[in-house]
Structure formats: structure tokens, C-alpha cells
């Protein structure tokens, strides 16, 4: 009885083994060196592919996912002095320049092939390997426009047209990455972006907190909402069997990159993983697993994608260096503008 307290503590601590034991690597894998990759939170790969990579390369893969691209960028900056990961995947176009500015990656040495066309201009040392790409577009509820007998909008300018008043729901650029892409697209496309946004909000545009909110609650097609126009991706219609389509004049390009972290414990492992991601098998899994388009031209898209997931031929393309310099200022300006317009 006298030792009851410490004993209790000890036995309780001993008991807490269930999930931890579960998560520990298998003893067989422990003999293999580990490669740790930071990914965005939509990262998804079939187990067989990872297993094949582990067999072939001799590395066991471990991943961490702190959030979206911006969260990853922030975490990499916070850990710059002593990185806890070897490689990173999922840095998008808008975060890429800032990552390059912080100079925390080493060259990946990968053969890019057709992916070459997606590299960042400012990346002179091959630090970022393009892995996949996609477009952020306004999605249209086809049935709604058919029934209403109105032609759906095609460009950003159309969205401020009174004919489309109260039909569009977008997402908050300060908290959602498609929202940020859309804001950057408007800044690139419009001479006076603040004037454009004032018109947009005056035209009854709703700003939702997150993509899922806008898509599943406010959008009239996927959700039960009142808005037949929603900000989403060019790939989204592939999941909706023809009920939706993209307004191609509103699309803006986003590329996702991978890189090898400076001072990493296992840079070779990270390089191997980047090679693996550029490989045909991984590239073909991209559409179904992560809703992104492969950067490898030779990879065929799934049938639903061929039919519904059209890409704009000439998407709105922002100057990424300018984005890196002004992102914060734009977001602050946008917040002021939005809060003034709604309060």
C-alpha cells in the first residue's frame, strides 16, 4: 500500500502501449534506413506502390503531414535549423518562391522529362521537382443553368455581371488554398483588383470559410445550397458524372513540387522518393488518389477525367516571384476590403 502511488504511475505508463506499439515500425523494417517525407494533408498513395518502393530502394517510408501547402511552408521555416524530414512534397506554386527564398533545399538531381515545362523560373539550382499539377476553376452546376435557361459565365469579368447576381460562392483566401489561387488570379487578370472585388461582393458573391463548406453546403449541385457557381478545381467535375463543369476562362494553374531538405539525415532517400514520384506508376495513380493531373505527358488520364475534367488551354498564370513578395500584403488588403464590404 505504501508504494501505491508510484506503483500506480508505473503500471499505468506500462499499460499505455497499445497504439504506440502498433505504430512502431516492424522489426524487419527497423534494419532499413528510414526516409521521412513531409506531405500536404491530401497525400494518398496505394499501399502497394509504397511497398514496391521500399523493396526496390531499401528505404522504409515515413510521412508527416502538418496541413496544406502554407502550413508545410511555415513548418519548414520553423524547423530550418534542425529539419526533422528528409524531403518535402506538396509545396504549391504560391509557396514555392518563398521556400526558394529561404534557401533550405538542395538540388534533387532527378531527370524531369516532360515535367520540365512546369518548373519554377526562379529555381536556377533544380531545387524543386514538379510532381503534379491542376487548375483552380469556377465550377458550374450544369442542371441549374439548363433549367434557368441562362448561359453560364465564362470569364472572371462575367462574375461581376448582374445576370449572375447572387450565384457565386468562393472561399476565404486567407484560410483556403483555392481561395488564395483565385485571389491571385484576379490580381493577375484585372487591372484594378480591389475594384473588381468590390464589384464581385456587391454582386452577391459569398465567401465561405473552407472549400468543403462552399462545395458541400453552398453549392447547389454537390450540396443543398443556393449557389450554382462554386470555386473548386478543374478535376472536381470528374467525380460528379457530368452534373458539373469548369468555366475555363476562370482557371488558374497550380503545380505541386517536391524537394530535398538541406541538412537532411537521409538526402539520398529523399532523392530516391522524388524519382519514384516521377515514375509512371505513381504518376498514373495521381488523378484517382489526389485529384491532380500527372506532369508526365505519357500517362493516360482515367476515363471520367477524359470526359469531364477539362483543363484550360491558356490558364491565368501569375508571376510567382511577385506573388511571393506580395502575398501577405494582398491578403491584408483583401481582409480590410472584405470586412469593410460586409460590416
Amino acid at each position: 500500500m505504501k508504494k501505491s502511488l508510484p506503483l500506480l504511475v508505473a503500471s499505468a505508463l506500462a499499460l499505455t502501449g497499445c497504439s504506440i506499439a502498433d505504430q512502431a515500425p516492424d522489426s524487419a523494417e527497423e534494419t532499413q534506413p528510414t526516409v521521412t517525407i513531409m506531405t500536404h494533408d491530401s497525400f494518398n498513395v496505394p499501399d502497394e506502390l509504397i511497398a514496391a518502393f521500399e523493396d526496390e530502394s531499401g528505404y522504409s517510408v515515413s510521412t508527416t503531414s502538418p496541413g496544406d501547402a502554407v502550413a508545410m511552408l511555415n513548418q519548414l521555416i520553423l524547423q530550418q535549423d534542425n529539419p526533422t524530414v528528409d524531403g518535402v512534397y506538396g509545396i504549391d506554386s504560391y509557396s514555392a518562391p518563398e521556400l526558394l527564398n529561404h534557401d533550405m533545399l538542395t538540388p534533387h538531381d532527378a531527370d524531369l522529362g516532360s515535367a520540365e515545362q512546369y518548373t519554377v523560373d526562379a529555381d536556377t539550382e533544380d531545387q524543386l521537382a514538379p510532381i503534379d499539377h491542376g487548375q483552380v476553376c469556377v465550377n458550374i452546376d450544369n442542371e441549374w443553368f439548363d433549367e434557368a435557361g441562362i448561359a453560364p459565365p465564362e470569364t472572371l469579368d462575367d462574375l461581376t455581371d448582374p445576370a449572375y447576381e447572387g450565384l457565386f460562392v468562393t472561399t476565404d483566401p486567407t484560410t483556403s488554398s483555392p481561395g488564395l489561387a483565385f485571389l491571385v488570379a484576379t490580381i493577375t487578370d484585372q487591372d484594378d483588383w480591389q475594384g473588381y472585388w468590390q464589384d464581385l461582393l456587391a454582386n452577391g458573391t459569398k465567401v465561405a470559410g473552407s472549400w468543403s463548406d462552399a462545395y458541400y453546403s453552398d453549392f447547389s449541385s454537390a450540396g443543398d445550397g443556393d449557389y450554382p457557381l462554386v470555386l473548386s478545381y478543374s478535376s472536381s467535375p470528374s467525380a460528379e458524372e457530368g452534373r458539373t463543369s469548369s468555366a475555363l476562362g476562370t482557371c488558374t494553374e497550380q503545380v505541386e513540387y517536391a524537394g530535398v531538405v538541406d541538412n537532411a539525415v537521409n538526402p539520398d532517400g529523399a532523392k530516391a522518393f522524388i524519382e519514384f514520384m516521377l515514375d509512371t506508376e505513381f504518376q498514373s495513380s495521381l488523378p484517382e488518389e489526389m485529384y491532380m493531373y500527372p506532369v508526365n505527358d505519357e500517362v493516360a488520364l482515367p476515363e471520367a477525367w477524359e470526359q469531364h475534367a477539362d483543363l484550360a488551354e491558356e490558364p491565368i498564370t501569375a508571376d510567382l516571384t511577385e506573388v511571393a513578395e506580395n502575398r501577405e500584403a494582398w491578403l491584408h488588403d483583401w481582409t480590410d476590403l472584405y470586412e469593410n464590404a460586409t460590416s
Binding site: 491530401s42 472549400w211 468543403s212 458541400y216 454537390a222 473548386s232 478535376s235 467525380a239 460528379e240 485529384y291
Partner: peptide
């Protein structure tokens, strides 16, 4: 994560 993907099944 499911909520962050399009498609009626995921929702």
C-alpha cells in the same frame, strides 16, 4: 479529409 474531396460518395 473525406470532406476535402469532391464526389457524393466521399461526402
Amino acid at each position: 479529409r473525406l470532406l476535402n474531396r469532391p464526389g457524393a460518395d466521399n461526402f
